[in-house]
Design a protein around this nucleic acid. Structure first.
Lengths: 354, 354
DNA sequence: GCGCCGGTTGTGATCGCTAACATATTCGCT
DNA sequence: AGCGAATATGTTAGCGATCACAACCGGCGC
């Protein structure tokens, strides 16, 4: 008799008994339109050589059944998942969040999906793990928003199997990368303060291990050295306003300090707060400059002079680079660098005449 | 005699003549381990009834080849993509970004991938589009972080095909939802100001169309009415500090205003700035309360009294609810509600004795 | 010694799609 | 008309996994 397990076919017309309403598949559309499944596939993929009448019939059938192609089946045969991965460290921060946003938008216009993986910690094993996860999912490429120096090593190991692009600070590794010129930005900020007449500029750095921290720190030091000025000891925070506040309390009563360049705006906010509590006027007694130009910076007390960084653009560019890589345009080896732009507001002013 | 070399497989010699290094598939592992592909599958999926010796051989082969199962193939046959979708409006904002983060973390521990889709605009067509996109990708469920009132309608339409959970403000629709009790939070904030002796409390609302805006507005009004107090006209912004600043300039010179409840912290920041510029002391002349308790709020000038909202937790809970729904525990119809918690800092103080 | 049983492994079929090739059908031009 | 080149459409064979079922194995009871 009829063995079990092969009645799948026919089910013409009204779905009778089956309570389950099976999702329509390509064959269903084909039958309804009176063509072969291949023709349906052609219509779906915009292949040439389909008579317009036929195309219309197929389209109508698709609409009628509300048919949607099964992406897994397609991915299986084409070996393309139409998915890109993003690994990011703390997507709660304004920077990473904006980059993610930029990436997603760009990916969508290129007709890719975006899958995210955040890291729990910033050691290289964790990065490796996230990348692996994404790879297992079958992403075609990966953007890494995790500018830890330690991450770079882990990254270069996998890049052979799946294209990887990093975004953030410039690295000295050989990995395709879109970055903001943090050094130049830091130099500009520091020079600005020097030009304002400050004897030297103090620096509140970001956490160790981040490429941004390192580059901004380097830029600051460079500017001081170029000016032949004393390089004071640096403090460092973890990007948070809280850490900026703590650093601020430590330096607030140091008469030596007349200008501080903070590695990001949030820490600058905390610093501003501490200075205010200590009764030190900004910019009257102390000038402060931040980095990033988050949307709130203009509303700080006082409005923050800072270095603008267009995170969205950074994300977009990173995706662009990744897509090129996917298209085989790789090995051009041209890292994209975006230049800094200072935003002058009120937190930095001339040094008081001794 | 018959040695260890059974008659099974002429094994060996993965002669890679071709330059192409094909990714290993299950059959390769099977051959190397001297078993059938099905046994490999069993090992991979932890099926019972596999002799431990066999399992070891398979595992070794997997390691040797660095084999990774093809997720598309698996998804095709199991009809499960192990992927969840998140649609969010502006993942640049602190709230959405944190929720996304919470969702991703929770999803990962449940062994799901997360695919994101941001909206360009907040009309319902756009929401529909994003959900469709995700659906086409084959996600098993969707979390919507897009608390626009208009979105709800669009959402309820698709929920039949794929489980959808919304997160954010409470809605009056019948959709599973994890929400923060915005009304209660707004009431508490308003009452706090009233208790401080203010005759009434002004409100700077969020943009129209957002459920958060509506609920916080409702809570504020409720508190005023309960106190039998005049309900002043409301202003409204778009969540940004800029819009708070603009609103602030309008009300700064109105002597009637002694207390303002802002629908979020960013707008409160802008308001604070405008007040400061106008020379009005906070909380001396005007008290201000925000909403969200973003990490920076403690460092505003003055530190902001606000209503705390744990976005990460919200995201986690939303995912939990979605997973339940996927597991078929649905129809419990118990929306999760998280209660408000006021954070008292320095921006709100007693009304001046008339 | 036979049959039954449960643990272990192998053999097809199948998921829904696209690629490659085979087969009509139409058209243009001598 | 006629014949080859396009232009349309259909047929078959996988992609790489899981699932259902069959086959094998050794031990046990009678």
């Amino acid at each position: 008799m009829i063995g079990p397990g092969h009645q799948r076919g026919l089910c013409v017309g009204v779905e009778a008994v089956g309570t389950e309403v099976r999702q329509p598949v390509m064959a269903d559309v084909a039958k309804l339109a009176g063509v072969s499944h291949q023709t349906v596939s052609r219509v779906l993929n915009g292949a040439p050589h389909v008579r317009s009448g036929t195309r219309e019939r197929v389209l109508a059938a698709i609409r009628e059944l509300d048919y949607r192609p099964n992406s897994a089946a397609r991915a299986l045969v084409t070996r393309r998942s139409q998915t890109l991965g993003v690994v990011s460290f703390d997507s709660t921060l304004y920077g990473p969040a904006s980059m993610l946003d930029g990436i997603e938008r760009a990916a969508r216009t290129a007709d890719y999906f975006v899958s995210v993986a955040s890291l729990r910690s910033l050691d290289s094993r964790s990065v490796q793990e996230a990348v692996d996860r994404l790879r297992d999912q079958g992403v075609e490429g990966i953007v890494v928003i995790a500018p830890q120096i330690s991450a770079v090593g882990a990254l270069s190991r996998v890049s052979s199997s799946v294209p990887v692009v990093a975004v953030g600070a410039g690295s000295r590794s050989r990995m395709p990368m879109v970055s903001f010129d943090n050094r130049a930005g830091a130099e500009a900020a520091t020079r600005h303060l020097l030009d304002l007449g400050h004897r030297t500029v103090h620096h509140l750095a970001g956490p160790a291990g981040w490429m941004e921290s390192r580059d901004r720190h380097d830029g600051w030091r460079q500017a001081l050295e170029d000016a032949g000025v004393r390089v004071p000891p640096v403090g460092s925070g973890d990007w948070s306003a809280r850490s900026g506040y703590q650093a601020g309390r430590r330096i607030a009563h140091d008469p030596e300090v007349t200008a501080v360049f903070c590695a990001n705006d949030h820490m600058a906010l905390g610093l501003l707060r501490a200075l205010h509590e200590a009764g030190r006027a900004v910019p009257g007694e102390i000038s402060v400059i931040g980095f990033d130009d988050i949307p709130e910076a203009a509303y700080f007390a006082p409005p923050l002079t800072t270095v603008r960084q267009d995170f969205g653009e950074l994300g977009r560019r990173a995706l662009e680079l990744l897509l090129q890589e996917l298209a085989g345009v790789s090995h051009t080896r041209d890292d994209v660098q975006i230049s800094p732009e200072m935003v002058l507001r009120r937190s930095a002013g001339p040094a008081r005449r001794g």
